[in-house]
């Protein structure tokens, strides 16, 4: 499917194909999410050289390595901080952060809220698979209640995080949620996020089949991907079978939009310009003199 006037998208053009097949498990949703991102990048006509991917630690963190772009695989929970420095220093780059539910909300939760507050132009994709997959399946801030993980062997007793609600409340410019089942919609959502001048946060519901799915008896990969919309089931006749699923009602699409000035713009106009510096996208990487 090619958007008008754009060459047909071939994902191989955006991958370090020599590294494939990737390390992710069979049926892992992260691959689909990656396709959606690269597809959106293609349709937004972002040059690979200008694309900077910053990823944290975890399965989501490893996604970046397959992208034929400037990729930075940084420390656990901190990709937003690295991206903040990068985006401030290099406003000419398209900075995209790929993070996971644990990376972004647990260890990196503080950075998320401040990145949202700051509204510095970048796109943050949080791949939510409800689990710490890389470390073998421990409970994460988004693990649904009652779910089994290696650290909740008797069922998760903690309530879960609504990442989008958090981001919206923290003032993120654009907040959206998509799911891997809906690749095209997800791609379109990411396009909006990429095009947004400010901090955009996209939560992507992505399945961990091999660890989370198996542990919780959620079925095969196709079953899990279909389950992403399971909560759409009508309750007008009462649900005859109870089964907990993702608690956050699965609203997808754009969830919030806070029209606020982009931080970099503000910094350049309010702080740098009075000193005779800072064009629209002036960076600080080049030697000044």
């Amino acid at each position: 499917m090619a958007a008008e006037g754009i060459d047909e998208f071939d994902i191989r053009d955006y991958l370090r194909t020599e590294l494939l097949p990737h390390f992710m498990c069979p049926g892992c949703g992260h691959g689909i999410a990656l396709r959606a991102l690269l597809w959106a990048v293609h349709e937004e006509r972002i040059a690979k050289d200008q694309l900077a991917i910053v990823t944290g630690i975890g399965c989501s963190g490893r996604v970046g390595g397959y992208i034929d772009a400037n990729t930075f695989h940084v420390t656990h929970g901190r990709p937003l901080t690295f991206a903040t420095g990068l985006a401030l220093a290099r406003p000419d780059l398209e900075v995209v952060v790929i993070t996971g539910d644990g990376d972004c909300l647990a260890i990196g939760g503080n950075h998320l809220i401040h990145a949202c507050r700051r509204n510095l132009r970048m796109t943050c994709l949080m791949l939510n698979n409800e689990i710490y997959g890389m470390t073998g399946g421990q409970v994460s801030p988004t693990t649904s209640e009652a779910r089994l993980t290696t650290t909740t062997p008797y069922g998760n007793a903690e309530p879960t995080f609504d990442a989008c609600g958090l981001a919206a409340a923290a003032g993120a410019g654009l907040v959206g949620r998509g799911m891997t089942l809906q690749t095209v919609a997800l791609k379109n959502l990411i396009r909006e996020a990429l095009a947004y001048r400010g901090f955009s946060f996209v939560e992507i519901l992505s399945d961990c089949t091999e660890i989370f799915g198996r542990k919780n008896d959620l079925g095969s990969s196709p079953e899990m991907i279909l389950r992403q919309k399971g909560s759409m089931r009508p309750d007008f006749y009462g649900n005859t079978v109870e089964h907990p699923f993702r608690p956050n009602n699965l609203t997808t699409g754009i969830i919030a939009r806070n029209e606020r000035p982009e931080y970099g713009d503000t910094y350049r106009s309010e702080v740098l310009a009075p000193h005779g510096h800072g064009g629209a996208a002036a960076g600080v990487s080049a030697p000044v003199e």
Binding site: F72, T81, T84, L86, A89, H111, G283, V284
Partner: peptide, 22 residues
Amino acid sequence: FIQMEDEIASMGAIIGASMGGA
């Protein structure tokens, strides 16, 4: 200049900026 939310973030930010060339 940016004042970050903590020292971890400050360290991340300068590394990010340095990787950008600053």
